[in-house]
Design a protein around this nucleic acid. Structure first.
Lengths: 341, 341
DNA sequence: TTGCACGATGTAAACGCTTACATACGGTCT
DNA sequence: AGACCGTATGTAAGCGTTTACATCGTGCAA
């Protein structure tokens, strides 16, 4: 209970400056509508009183919160955090604040957060991926809150998206893998339930294989948690299989680094004995020994473009058009030709 | 201009349910003050109309935003992002939303963000470190907004803090380094201007050296940006010095990984030719070859405890007492005995 | 039966700002 | 000099909740 003395109001400032509340308000919001002399007086009063406008009253009168919301699976994932950073910076430039919430990869939590953020006055929402219940879209529509999906690019999905095509990006990587002669392929994926990005990456590998005439039984997929250790364990498990896969395609860099680390422990040389690839191109990918072949995710551009698109949708009332971004293959030492024997 | 049909208000719901606005409000906020039959009627009306309370009006009347603010240097730093994640999760449990802003390590930006977040209705603020202008504290005091500092622990600093003592943690690491026989010590630090965490870490090394009778000229400190590449360049530069340092203490894991990477490029063996240490214990530290000796920063606990303390300060009006946390030394292969020659 | 207490609901007053509209005041043009 | 115009400022009406207080009704004790 912060029951201290009440904060000064517009009225107090107006009285102190000897003007009306309207003039004070104008000084703060549209300074050029007030003549210099008056403005100075008012600003001086604001200063001495330590006035700061009341948020509630302001948005109630202006009918604008100038706040956007973002719901990401978790900021523990550095790559989301970085996208969020760019999103926030761009939003700030446009005069918006950012409220964040996390779903922890749980659709129910995400749905709850959508309601929370809208109730908290978010004028627009940034979500990750397209996997969600139709009820959410309906809710957003009735509340008249525009939303966009990042980390994907899919023109005919429910939400306009800003990002790259997970399926195609991974397909390109898998294509290159196959080109190098690999035919016994294993994949470590994050859990695909409720995660279209992970699912699409698996699809991408499948498609590349199908295109190359490799049957579905040439691929072994295991799901693992988004952790280095889990990647390591999954790699271990995959290496027990006979015949052994010649390449392990990972759905992300974190698991891939777990894989290379485990390979070293198992005294398997990467890529001589087995190749490993990642996805995201985070710092880890460079540091891994050997450096990871991976897909570069444009997290910064994604965050920035998402912010711009969302602001445009909120302010222009426009429907919002998907912005596809490139996610180029970064070929590094962890991927080599299939071992001959 | 989202000029669509206006959203339903409390009045609309009240009319639809055939009750007063007060009853509807009670149904939503204190359901047990309303008899079952009425409540059902009202909730049905809420549902069919798709009613969602107006944020501005609500906080104006209730005088509570249930929003906290956090200003961190950047979410590009995974370790801040993770602390923030824990902070947000804990806040959510307590019924608060989180507005985030970033200072980009710039005190002026931080000051501006403090004002922005307060104007945005933040009831409490999480800041990083203690390095800031007194004017900020004064502003927060007049606005009656409690704030705490994370990533540090300093009982007699202006703000109550939740975190660890950067100086002591680094001193412990340096002590161990010296114990291993190192006497020509180099340090790569993030820029210390306006960054008490970085500065305190340097102090820690200096103190450990002084305690061991090593003069200040046994230490070479270079500042570098918070990037792998910058760490690599700084390491290169330090390795040109003669006599060459036998250990490079880095202010953080990112720069340390840059150092080990550069060492490999220079065909220097770590720790045989030169030892390297980090600070933070992020994923990178495990993955580095060799794994980094570092200081484990309790980012998750810090975020959680910070949230709890802040909520307590906001709700209880209590002054807030510093919560010191451990940041233990994690000794791994990158630190070895001083090379004999 | 009357009176009372108490629980359920209604009434209406804030809350502090923005902004449409009204007003006042000079200055210009005829 | 009078009419007119434009600019700077004032007046006051909301904005949609919450909540103190008033009112109503029902059940129970006397």
């Amino acid at each position: 209970m912060p029951s201290d003395k009440p904060l000064p109001t517009l009225h107090d400032v107006a009285r102190a400056a000897g003007v009306s509340t309207a003039t004070v308000s104008r000084c703060l919001n549209t300074p050029d509508k007030v003549v210099e002399r008056t403005r100075k007086k008012v600003l001086a009063a604001v200063e001495t009183l330590g006035y700061s406008p009341n948020f509630g009253a302001r948005i109630m009168a202006a009918k604008r919160t100038r706040t956007m919301g973002a719901i990401i699976p978790t900021m523990d994932n550095a790559i989301f955090a970085r996208g969020l950073q760019a999103f926030q910076e761009t939003l700030l430039q446009a005069g918006y604040s950012l409220v964040v919430a996390s779903s922890l990869y749980d659709p129910a939590q995400e749905a709850a957060q959508v309601r929370t953020l809208v109730a908290r006055g978010a004028e627009g929402l940034l979500l990750i991926g397209q996997d969600r219940d139709a009820a959410i879209h309906q809710f957003l529509a009735t509340q008249n809150v525009p939303a966009i999906a990042a980390w994907c690019a899919d023109a005919d999905a429910p939400l306009p998206s800003v990002g790259f095509d997970n399926r195609l990006a991974m397909k390109a990587l898998a294509h290159r893998v196959i080109q190098l002669g690999h035919a016994r392929i294993a994949m470590i994926s994050a859990p695909v339930a409720g995660n279209d990005r992970a699912r699409m990456r698996v699809h991408g590998v499948r498609e590349a294989m199908a295109d190359a005439g490799l049957g579905p039984d040439s691929l072994t997929v295991v799901e693992a948690a988004y952790e280095i250790q889990a990647g390591a364990e999954a790699f271990d498990q995959l290496m027990q299989r006979r015949p052994r896969p010649t390449v392990v395609i990972c759905g992300n860099d974190v698991q891939a680094v777990g894989a290379t680390t485990m390979a070293r422990q198992m005294r398997l040389s990467v890529p001589r004995d087995v190749s490993v690839t990642g996805f995201d191109d985070m710092d880890l990918a460079h540091v891994s020994v050997p450096p990871l072949t991976t897909v570069q995710v444009p997290h910064h551009r994604m965050g920035r473009d998402a912010a711009q698109l969302l602001v445009q949708m909120v302010e222009g009332g426009t429907p919002g058009r998907t912005i596809p971004l490139d996610a180029p293959l970064k070929e590094r030492a962890s991927l080599g030709a299939v071992p001959r024997r």
